[in-house]
Simulated assay, not measured.
Amino acid sequence: MADKEEQETMTSYKLFLRVISKRRTWVCLFLVVYAVLLSSSRNSLNSIVNWYGENHQTSSGLPAIYASVLLGAVFGVLSMAAALFIAVPAIVVIWISVVVTIAFPVKSRKKVVIEGRKVTKEIAGYVFKVLLKEGNFVALLCAVTAYFVFFKSYSSSS
């Protein structure tokens, strides 16, 4: 009886590993986290759009630029937060692997701590650079798209 339960547990564990190793699983997880973050920041997005609705009658296209930059910034921050949320488990596994690998040839705990701190700084710096690059790309894409949408609505209402 215990063997059957153990076998079912191993089967479900293997299924879990197979599902979690797929790229589409992580993409779906990213999209779910992004949707949750987006729905939680709905008020700020609505306030930006409402502000543009009140101010787009001016003679210049500056409200469209301001609103699109703000929307781009919000979407960029949201995408960085979602990517960080998804990437944290992988980062922790990589960090643990590297620190354990460092610990094998080194005898002194003090040296392991020093090397571990260096590795932690390097990993954090690399992750921060990647997040900024990806977040800036999303922010730019959203800002340009929002500008054209706002400018089109500005042109059609004039």
Rank of each mutant, 00 (worst) to 15 (best):
Y34C: 13
K111P: 00
V99W: 06
G53D: 10
F128R: 05
L37W: 00
S39V: 09
S44K: 12
A64N: 04
Y52R: 05
A81Y: 01
V100T: 06
V77I: 11
K121S: 15
R42E: 12
V93N: 03
V93W: 03
A35C: 14
F75I: 10
A64M: 11
V99Y: 10
A124G: 06
V112S: 04
A64W: 03
I96M: 05
V99F: 06
L45D: 01
I123N: 03
L71N: 03
S108A: 14
P63W: 09
V93R: 09
N55D: 02
S97H: 12
T58Y: 11
E122A: 14
V130P: 02
P89K: 11
N43P: 00
N55W: 04
L70F: 12
K121E: 15
S60C: 06
I91E: 04
T120A: 13
T101I: 06
Y34D: 13
E122V: 12
Q57N: 12
F75E: 15
S39K: 06
W51R: 07
T58L: 09
I48S: 00
I94V: 14
S60G: 12
I96L: 11
V106H: 00
V127M: 08
A67Q: 03
V33E: 02
A35G: 13
G76A: 04
T101K: 08
G125Y: 14
A35P: 07
P89A: 02
K107F: 04
A73L: 03
A83R: 05
A90C: 13
A124M: 09
